[in-house]
Write a protein that binds this DNA or RNA. Structure first.
Lengths: 141, 141
DNA sequence: AGAATAAAAGAGTTTTTTATCTTTTTATTG
DNA sequence: CAATAAAAAGATAAAAAACTCTTTTATTCT
């Protein structure tokens, strides 16, 4: 479903939500090791998220990546859209160039339900809320 | 969501459902041109589906690909599983190696709803039924 | 100011997916 | 039975995604 990059990105964002804040930033290396994900590759992803203001970062000593209050009050949709592109939520499930209610593909109507589930997955809880649940229930990232 | 290969495959199966039968088989070329999909590539996909008995084929003059009665009374799940692998319906949305009800990833519970939508998409109508709707409503493939 | 630290940016490399080309096998028909 | 049509199989090529390495830039601390 999501690309590998996108999965890494979501997990990294959750990790940052739990372990970082404006006073305690994390280096790529720490995050990469914690998630068991290739470091330099994750760096690229985090930089991209940072450019799009979905996470925050500062350079230099004691610098690193972190989530601002605003960042963690957002939901995961922006993260996904930033990495995989906004089309993941809208593009035709059969890859047809035009596919809409007036010009639907054979699977269009059922795809709506599926897509609804997908949106709920990333939209109806904030990053902070997900992170809280992870902490409370000791979930793995 | 589905790979490009899988999208091609689904569309090709629907095309066969509408335009072929045991008495009238279609060559790869015709299907590829009708769907505007790369011919040799589609050939590979159709061969794979044929090997897995999701579509039927015969060689030689007047040979080609077609759907048997049995083929068109099946649903699309087999087609998807044959091309993209059965994991698409079961694997963790965050790519975690272990993710289950007792050991859920942070998005597990919502992912269930989403996954349900995905399964309905491919499971609760037969290929024949989809094809019928395509014909009746003159949908594009 | 200078050294050290860490992200940002740029330039590769590898692997996987998508696509093509060629040869072989099988069936059909005249 | 020879010619032909079409799938099957194999080998190769191009494009995209995943991953790595090197250099630059910004920040902090002494």
């Amino acid at each position: 479903m999501f690309s590998k990059s996108c999965k890494y990105a979501i997990r990294a964002v959750l990790y940052l939500a739990i372990h970082s804040n404006a006073e305690h930033k994390l280096g790529v290396k720490e995050v990469a090791e914690a998630l068991d994900v290739p470091g330099p590759f994750l760096a690229k992803l985090l930089q991209q998220l940072s450019r799009h203001h979905l996470i925050s970062s500062t350079k230099g000593p004691n610098g690193g990546f972190y989530l601002s209050k605003a960042n963690s009050n957002a939901n995961l949709r922006g993260v996904v859209e930033s990495i995989d592109g906004p089309e993941v939520f809208t593009s035709c499930i059969l890859g047809l160039p035009v596919c809409s209610s007036n010009n639907p593909c054979p699977l269009h109507s059922r795809a709506l339900i599926y897509r609804q589930g997908l949106l709920e997955l990333v939209e109806d809880q904030t990053i902070k809320e997900v992170a809280k649940r992870v902490e409370r229930q000791e979930l793995k990232i």
